[in-house]
């Protein structure tokens, strides 16, 4: 488990979308490394590009530029059967357990679908018996096999999504807000399931979320994104104990803590809202909302710099 090659690595990854003759910078120059058996948490507010990043890594979207490495191989240009092969090893769990399942397929059909499509087994019955095993693995009673998604609650539906993602024996799973649509008690059940699976099968996760307490709980490393860029990246505990970027600080201070003694803590409320990702200015993208921004911040691009022990921060004020 302690190989030095990261399972997933990106260098200078960019994804721009064309919108009415302008460019929307959804993912802008992201470098990341995820080591086998570890979890990288990606946090940020809606529209910061975290879901796009996940989809580009899975090659569900074509990157504008940059490279994606999977287990040391550059998969950026893979096509056809090689792409299909690599995709089997990388899966995704979606946010909404309602719209991500085909309402006209039964639970067993949904879980067996990937195996049938990829001809993993000679006969369909084998795929279905494997589907039943997967249901045991994710804690879904086998009696649900012939029900349809609408007959189940959100938590059970999300377990179907997990079972389906596991069906091709992947090593890497992108979890795109898998618990955001669930109630807290159900959310905890799914988080425990994901962590147990990681421990037992050695899965590697990229966990995308906007919920900071969830991300600390599940991640080894955390990357904070703002308008398509990584503003800070560090070990999970380090990031929470010692946030350096003004945006990370504000984000952490904005979480209402379930602790009555924290009631009078000073909240740094950041002004304004996320600016447009369409043709963003050259300087720091957080500058218009930043309390300590100077003129330099608005005009000069900021680099992501290691501030010691793998704690990367992109802020000109750090110098």
């Amino acid at each position: 488990m302690t190989t030095q090659t990261p399972l997933v690595k990106t260098t200078g990854l960019k994804k721009y979308f064309n919108v009415s003759k302008k460019l929307l910078h959804a993912v802008d120059d992201i470098d990341l490394e995820i080591f086998p058996g570890k979890t990288l948490g990606v946090v940020g507010e809606s529209g910061c590009g975290k879901s796009t990043l996940g989809r580009v890594i899975l090659r569900l979207l074509e990157p504008t530029s940059g490279d994606i490495f999977y287990d040391g191989e550059n998969i950026t240009k893979y096509r056809g059967s090689r792409l299909k092969e690599i995709r089997a090893q990388m899966q995704i769990i979606f946010q909404d357990p309602y719209s991500s399942l085909n309402p006209r397929m039964s639970v067993a059909e949904i879980i067996a679908e990937y195996m049938i499509v990829n001809h993993v087994y000679k006969r369909k019955t084998e795929a279905f018996s494997q589907a039943a095993k997967l249901m045991d693995l994710v804690g879904l009673a086998r009696r649900y096999a012939n029900l349809y998604p609408h007959e189940l609650d959100g938590g059970r539906r999300q377990r179907i999504g997990v079972a389906r993602a596991l069906s091709l024996n992947p090593s890497f799973i992108v979890c795109d807000e898998p618990v955001s649509a669930l109630d807290v008690s159900i959310q905890a059940q799914i988080l425990n399931l994901l962590m147990d699976l990681q421990e037992n099968i050695g899965l590697t996760y990229m966990f995308i979320t906007h919920d900071l307490s969830v991300v600390r709980h599940i991640s080894d490393d955390i990357m904070v994104m703002y308008l398509g860029q990584c503003v800070e990246r560090a070990r999970a505990d380090e990031l929470f104990d010692n946030p350096l970027h003004p945006y990370t600080k504000a984000l952490l201070s904005a979480i209402p803590e379930p602790d009555i003694d924290a009631r009078n803590k000073e909240i740094q409320i950041i002004r304004g809202e996320v600016t447009s990702p369409i043709n963003p200015p050259a300087g720091c993208r957080f500058a218009p909302r930043c309390e300590s921004a100077t003129e330099k911040c608005a005009t000069e691009a900021v680099e992501l710099v290691d501030r010691g022990e793998g704690h990367f921060v992109a802020c000109a004020k750090m110098d």
Binding site: V184, S185, I186, Q187, A188, Q189, L191, N192, M195, L212, S213, V214, R216, H217, I218, A236, D237, F240, I255, E257, P258, D259
Partner: peptide
């Protein structure tokens, strides 16, 4: 059960205790 289900911000718990 509700309190056991929420991940803590200040400390790291190994496992959440959800309501079954």
């Amino acid at each position: 059960g509700l309190f056991g289900s929420i991940p803590k911000l200040r400390e790291r718990v190994k496992r959440l205790k959800p309501i079954s």
